[in-house]
Design a protein around this nucleic acid. Structure first.
Length: 822
DNA sequence: TCCTCTGAAGCC
DNA sequence: GCTTCAGAGGAC
C-alpha cells in the first residue's frame, strides 16, 4: 500500500441533478482516524465550502489533482453503513437526490448551517489606514469595534460592492471564513467532584486562609457529601459563586468537567412498571408467529390483522421482549396522532429507560437527544412516527408498524418514501421480522398477504370476549324527507340524550376531509375563494377570519359580499365549530370538548383535552380524524359519525377503502370496557358498500369487494402507478409543457404501460401556480419500473424551466394532499 | 473600446 | 446551488 493515498467519496450538500453523485477528496493525514463512513465533512466545492456525507472510502495510488477534506464535523458518524446504503436505495427508488435521502435520515439539527463571517485580517497593518479607500472605511471601522460580522452585513457596509470585498481579502485586510455548524449546540452541564479523599480534603481545609470563608464552606460540603454534583446545583445550594469553585479546582482539591446532558422530555413523569399480561389463545398464536422468525434470525413479514380492542399492543410488547432477549433492537412505528401519552406510557412502563420516543411534539434539541441515545446504543427500543424508521440501530431484530394502513406513513415531500417499504428494506438487511398490524390493513397489504407474501395471523376477538358495538346506519335523506333539516338525526339525538342521562360519555366524529365551513353569499351565490388557490376559504369562528388551508392566506370575514355588496353573507358547511354551536343550542347543559386544529394547535393541548375528557369533565368529545384511533375511555358507550360519506366522493381511488377504515376505527372507540357500546353512522350514501360493510363488521367481504373494484378499473394493487405533477405560474405554459411531456413519455414507455392525462390536478391552482397531473400505470412484476424510472428522469431533465416544478411520485401521492386534521 | 448583463458550465 | 466566465449588446 506504499505511496497510495486515502480517498473519501463524498455526497455534497448541493442537491441538484448535476452534483448528485459522490465526489472524491483526499483524506489529510491528520484527519485519517476521524474520517469515517457516514460522517459529515466540510469540503471545498468549487469556490466555496460545503457540508457533505462520506459514503465511501478507498485507497488509490493515482490521485490526479484532488482537493482535501477540510474538517470532520462528527465524532460519531450520524449514519451507519447500513443507512448510507439505504440512502442510495431511496434516491433510486423515490427518484430524489442522494443528499435529500441521506439528510432525511438524521435529526434536523444535523442539517447544518452556513455562515459566512468577515473579520479583520490578523496581519492587517495599522499604519496602512492612510491607504483606506473611502468606500471600505465604514466596514473597517465596524470590524475594529465588533471584531467580526456576517458577509451580508459587510456587503451592506460597502454599498454592495462584492468585488471590493474580494480585493480587501486578497490584499489581506480582511479574512473571510465559511462556518458550517449544527443548528443547536448540545446542552452542556458542568459537574464538580472532589479530587481528593475526605482526609485530604480536611487537610486542605485547614491550610486555607481564615478569610476564605466561602471556600471553607464548599470543602466542608464535599467532606459531608464526597460525590459529584452539577455546578449549578452546588452554587445555588451553598450560595457561592463560580470563582470560589475555580480557586478550589486550582488548588487541586476539586475537579470539574463539562458533560453533555440529555434533555429528557419525560423527566418529570413516573411510569408505572407493568408486567406482561397473560395472553388469549389467539394472541399467543400471533406472538408465536412473530417470535419464531425472530429466533431464527431470518427476514419475515407478518400481517397481524386484529380487530379493534383485540390486544395487538400486548402482542407487540411481548415480541419486543423476545427481541431484547436475543440482544437485538426493535423499532415501533405508530401514526403521529396515536402517539399519545397512553401509548408511550405502555412502552415506557414495560421497558423503562430502554425506550427512546421520537415524535413531533419534541423540540429539535429533545429530538436530537432521543436520537443520540439510539445512535450510542443506550436504548434498545425506538418508538415514533414515520421518520423513526431511520432509527440508527445496528442490530435490528424487529420492526413493528402499527395501524399500517395509515396514510401518514407516506411522506409527501421529497424523499417521498413509504415507511412500510423502508421498513421492509431494513428488515431484509438485518434478517429481522417485520410486523404490519392493523384492524383494517391497507388493501395492498391484504392482497399481498392473500398471495402468501406475508405471514398472516388474525385476532378476531376482543379481549375478555367483549362484544362488538351495535352499529346503526341512519339515512340522512330519510331525515330530510321527515322534515328534519338539522345535522342530528332523531336517532342520534335520542341516543345522545339517553347516554348523557345515564352519566356515560359520547364521542362525536366529524370527518371534515374535503368538507369544511365555507362562506357564501345568499344573494348572488358567490363563495369566498382564496386569491392564490382554487379552493374555497374556510371559516374560523375563533377570530372571525376565513383562511386558506393550503397556502395559509387569511382575511377577516367581510361584512358584505365582495361581488354584489349584499349583506346576506354567511358561513355554510358542517365544521366542528358549527356542530359545537348546534350541540349547545339543542342540548343545553351538555358539556362538550372540541378537538380540531383550532383547539389543539398549542403544544400539549391535545393531551390536556383528552385528559379532561378521561376525567369526566365533559359528556361529549367532538372532533375530527384525530380522535378516530387509539382512544380508550371506559365510559364511552356511544359513538356518532355526523356525516360518513364526506370523503367518499373525493377524486381518489382509495376513497372507499379510506371510508371503510375510518368507520371501522371510529366504531372501535365504543364499548371497549364493561358497558356495551353503540355506534350511529349518519350518511347520505347508506347503500354504499364501504359504509354498509363497516357497519356490519364484514371486513373480509369488504376487501373482496374492493379488490374486485380495483381489478375492474385497473388500480393498485393490480397495477403500480407513477404520478407526475407539474406546476407553473402561467396557465398556457403549463398546458403546453404537459402536452409535450406526455408525448415524450408516451413515446418512450413500454407499450403495455398506460398514460393518463395530462389533466388538471385535484387542486388546479395552488399558491398562484397552475397544476396538471399525469398518471402512468405499469406492472411492477414485469420490470416496467426499471424502464420507466430512467425514462421519467430523462424527460424531467429535458424541461428545465426554472419556473416549472415537476414532482414524480410512485403511487398517487397528490390525491392524498388533503391532510388529516384539516 | 470598455462595461454590464445574462446564460451555461463546472464543481472532486 | 453558487460562482465564474465568456459572449453579446449597449453607451460613450
Amino acid at each position: 500500500m506504499s505511496g497510495s493515498k486515502s480517498i473519501a467519496q463524498v455526497i455534497v450538500d448541493v442537491p441538484t441533478k448535476a452534483t448528485d453523485r459522490p465526489f472524491d477528496y483526499l483524506v489529510p493525514e491528520a484527519l485519517m482516524s476521524e474520517v469515517r463512513l457516514g460522517c459529515r465533512v466540510k469540503v471545498p466545492f468549487g469556490p466555496r465550502k460545503v457540508l457533505g456525507y462520506v459514503v465511501g472510502l478507498k485507497d488509490e495510488a493515482e490521485t490526479p489533482r484532488l482537493k482535501a477534506i477540510l474538517d470532520v464535523l462528527d465524532f460519531v458518524p450520524p449514519l451507519t453503513p447500513e443507512l448510507v446504503r439505504l440512502g442510495f436505495f431511496m434516491a433510486d427508488e423515490y427518484m430524489c437526490h442522494t443528499m435529500t435521502a441521506l439528510a432525511s435520515m438524521v435529526p434536523a439539527v444535523l442539517k447544518g448551517t452556513y455562515e459566512k463571517v468577515v473579520r479583520l485580517h490578523p496581519e492587517v497593518d495599522a499604519q496602512a489606514d492612510s491607504l483606506l479607500t473611502l468606500s471600505a472605511a465604514p466596514l473597517l471601522t465596524h470590524l475594529r469595534e465588533k471584531k467580526e460580522c456576517l458577509w451580508d452585513e459587510a456587503l451592506t457596509l460597502v454599498a454592495n460592492d462584492a468585488p471590493l470585498l474580494r480585493q480587501l481579502a486578497e490584499a489581506k485586510w480582511i479574512q473571510v471564513e465559511e462556518r458550517i455548524g449544527d443548528r443547536v449546540t448540545r446542552q452542556k452541564v458542568m459537574w464538580v467532584r472532589p479530587k481528593q479523599s475526605v482526609n485530604q480534603l480536611k487537610q486542605t481545609l485547614e491550610q486555607l486562609s481564615g478569610r476564605a470563608k466561602r471556600q471553607q464552606e464548599v470543602l466542608r460540603y464535599f467532606i459531608r457529601h464526597p460525590e459529584e454534583i452539577p455546578l449549578s446545583s452546588l452554587l445555588t445550594e451553598l450560595q457561592v459563586v463560580r470563582s470560589t469553585i475555580q480557586k478550589l479546582v486550582e488548588l487541586d482539591a476539586l475537579a470539574w468537567e463539562e458533560r453533555e446532558e440529555y434533555r429528557d422530555p419525560f423527566k418529570d413523569r413516573k411510569f408505572q412498571p407493568t408486567k406482561p399480561l397473560s395472553l388469549t389463545e389467539e394472541q399467543a398464536e400471533a406472538l408465536q408467529a412473530i417470535v419464531q422468525p425472530i429466533r431464527d434470525r431470518r427476514y419475515c413479514s407478518v400481517l397481524l390483522e386484529g380487530v379493534t380492542g383485540s390486544g395487538k399492543t400486548e402482542v407487540y410488547l411481548q415480541a419486543i421482549a423476545e427481541v431484547l432477549n436475543t440482544g437485538r433492537e426493535a423499532i415501533v412505528l405508530v401514526p403521529e396522532i396515536s402517539l399519545t401519552p397512553q401509548m408511550v406510557e405502555r412502552f415506557k412502563g414495560r421497558f423503562g429507560d430502554q425506550v427512546a420516543v421520537l415524535h413531533s411534539g419534541l423540540s429539535s434539541g429533545e429530538r436530537f437527544d432521543e436520537w443520540r441515545k439510539i445512535r450510542r446504543g443506550e436504548v434498545k427500543v425506538a418508538i415514533g412516527a414515520r421518520s423513526a424508521i431511520f432509527a440508527p440501530f445496528q442490530q435490528v431484530g424487529l420492526i413493528i408498524i402499527d395501524e399500517e394502513h395509515e396514510s401518514s406513513y407516506k411522506q409527501e415531500e421529497n424523499p417521498k418514501y413509504h415507511a412500510r417499504e423502508v421498513a421492509a428494506w431494513r428488515a431484509q438487511y438485518h434478517g429481522a421480522t417485520l410486523v404490519l398490524g392493523s384492524a383494517t390493513p391497507a388493501l395492498e397489504t391484504y392482497y399481498h398477504a392473500s398471495l402468501g407474501m406475508h405471514e398472516w395471523v388474525t385476532l378476531k376477538e376482543r379481549v375478555h370476549g367483549r362484544p362488538f358495538p351495535a352499529v346503526k346506519i341512519v339515512d340522512m335523506r330519510e331525515e330530510l324527507r321527515k322534515g328534519n333539516r338539522t345535522m342530528f338525526s332523531d336517532t342520534l339525538r335520542e341516543e345522545l340524550l339517553a347516554c348523557v342521562e345515564r352519566g356515560e360519555q359520547a364521542v362525536l366524529f366529524l370527518n371534515r376531509r374535503g368538507f369544511s365551513t365555507f362562506v357564501m353569499c345568499r344573494e348572488c351565490g358567490e363563495t369566498l375563494m382564496c386569491p392564490h388557490c382554487d379552493i374555497s376559504l374556510t371559516y374560523h369562528q375563533t377570530n372571525r377570519t376565513v383562511r386558506c388551508h393550503y397556502c395559509g392566506y387569511a382575511e377577516r370575514v367581510p361584512q358584505t359580499c365582495p361581488s354584489c355588496q349584499s349583506q346576506h353573507i354567511r358561513h355554510f358547511g358542517t365544521g366542528t365549530q358549527r356542530v359545537e354551536e348546534e350541540l349547545a343550542r339543542r342540548f343545553p347543559g351538555v358539556r362538550v370538548i372540541r378537538m380540531d386544529v383550532d383547539t389543539t394547535s398549542r403544544k400539549g393541548a391535545h393531551e390536556r383535552l383528552l385528559k379532561a375528557f378521561g376525567e369526566g369533565k365533559a359528556d361529549v368529545l367532538l372532533g375530527t380524524q384525530m380522535i378516530a384511533k387509539g382512544l380508550d375511555f371506559p365510559k364511552v358507550t356511544l359513538v356518532g359519525v355526523i356525516a360518513a360519506d364526506t370523503m367518499l366522493h373525493l377524486p381518489d381511488f382509495r376513497a372507499a377503502e379510506r371510508t371503510f377504515q375510518l368507520l371501522t376505527q371510529v366504531s372501535g372507540r365504543a364499548g371497549r370496557h364493561e358497558k356495551p357500546g353503540k355506534v350511529i353512522i349518519q350518511t347520505y350514501s347508506a347503500e354504499h358498500y364501504s359504509i354498509d360493510l363497516a357497519a356490519s363488521h364484514q371486513t373480509e367481504t369488504f376487501y373482496k369487494q374492493e379488490c374486485f373494484m380495483r381489478k375492474q378499473h385497473e388500480y393498485p394493487p393490480y397495477c403500480s402507478l407513477f404520478t407526475i405533477l407539474i406546476s407553473h405560474p402561467d396557465r398556457v405554459t403549463v398546458m403546453r409543457t404537459g402536452q409535450e411531456m406526455a408525448r415524450q413519455i408516451q413515446t418512450g414507455m413500454p407499450a403495455e404501460c398506460q398514460l393518463l392525462g395530462p389533466v388538471p390536478a385535484p387542486i388546479p391552482r395552488l399558491k398562484d401556480r397552475y397544476r396538471l397531473q399525469m398518471l402512468v400505470k405499469y406492472q411492477a412484476e414485469r420490470g416496467h419500473a426499471l424502464m420507466l424510472k430512467p425514462l421519467l428522469r430523462e424527460v424531467v431533465a429535458m424541461f428545465d424551466d426554472p419556473e416549472l416544478r415537476i414532482s414524480v411520485d410512485r403511487d398517487a401521492g397528490e390525491l392524498m394532499e388533503i391532510r388529516d386534521g384539516w
